[in-house]
Design a protein around this nucleic acid. Sequence first.
DNA 1: GCATGTGAATAGATTCACAGCG
DNA 2: CGCTGTGAATCTATTCACATGC
Lengths: 227, 227
Amino acid sequence: MGAWGTGLYSGDFALDMRSTIRAVARLPVYLRSLLEVAATGTTTISSETLAEMAGVNAAKVRKDLSYLGSFGTRGVGYDVQYLLFQMSAELGLNQEWPVVIVGVGNLGHALANYRGFGERGFPVGALVDADPARRGERVGNLVVHGMDDLDEIVGTHGIAIGVIATPASAAQDVADRLVAAGIRAILNFAPAMVTVPDTVSLRKVDLAVELQILSFYQQRQLPAATA
Amino acid sequence: MGAWGTGLYSGDFALDMRSTIRAVARLPVYLRSLLEVAATGTTTISSETLAEMAGVNAAKVRKDLSYLGSFGTRGVGYDVQYLLFQMSAELGLNQEWPVVIVGVGNLGHALANYRGFGERGFPVGALVDADPARRGERVGNLVVHGMDDLDEIVGTHGIAIGVIATPASAAQDVADRLVAAGIRAILNFAPAMVTVPDTVSLRKVDLAVELQILSFYQQRQLPAATA
DNA sequence: GCATGTGAATAGATTCACAGCG
DNA sequence: CGCTGTGAATCTATTCACATGC
């Protein structure tokens, strides 16, 4: 039975949670491969094929998928459509999750114009900036709001996820305000450590860190072990 | 003695490499904390303080730093300036590493306008796009070149790192061309698996995947274990 | 027969705990 | 004395290998 439940055992997730953050992080990669396969009309796929597409070990694929439930058929493989359905459901991708971007400087502007979020089910619902001078500025088809509007914005737009794209110095304060406004998932692009209550999910992306890691291996003239 | 060498033992890196990709990925985070501390004029720092700033365990900090060499003083801590100097050297941050961005669509455009790269020592040296219609287009103070110019661009601008910001379908081809042009470090933003010869370093950032991971925990109403 | 699902084995990373040294 | 540096212990993740069931 799925460690993450199939709806039959709601409530015991935390107890029965045999999965790991790493397994969760791989699910979207499998999903991508499945979508690719589905587009060719293929109806079933083996863990081996899926593993090759995702660039991982086949046993890992099977174990990761087993956390979702026993969706495969022995001797056959996985039904592509069924697995897609189950995985989308587990990842919560059957609904849209509007995001608010806080900080409309260089990066925030860039992210606001990036259509990739919306295309994948995370439409940018609102923009917020602490600088009063930016208030009212148009970016794409959105208007920049002040920080004080955060509570209202989160409510009216059904915002689920906050994206921090401020300078490092403002990141913690922004995180606190997002949490206070009821946001329970944050993606932090600011190059700063941010802490949140443990009821809130937090992921971090630091573009410069990625480049610095490459620079390290470049410097050493060693290839980086792929992360 | 430093597992990564101090210049005394050049050549034995691969053999003596006790470090891990994960330790390497934490160095830039320590660097950031050190810069912060240095700005306040503090001259020494303990592993405990550094650990707290970086949000990790103190023993981990000490072990990570020990890979660079024995730079601390027992009973005292680490000299901030000296550690900064050594770490910058190990990370190859005493020089600039110009990058070429391939793909000037939404994300590529966004990244090209993002000043964060240049500010941290990774200036955007050139822009390239496969679409002939984009050739000659200006983005900031750069002009978009065709893919065929890649070899020449890499040479004349001393490009060290390639950034892939194309659609998924083009990513592997672009990676191949970057490698053929002599690039040995690649940061891939395209939502696709890319393989490169093992002489080339490859890192991957998929913004949608980060959001999907948050969505998973949101869906479950569980907080994400921070990555 | 064949590929899943999963205990057991292995590999890897983190943390402990303390000897060593300024 | 206090804090580093590191072997040993622990914890986590990956991979193996095979019993299981279509």
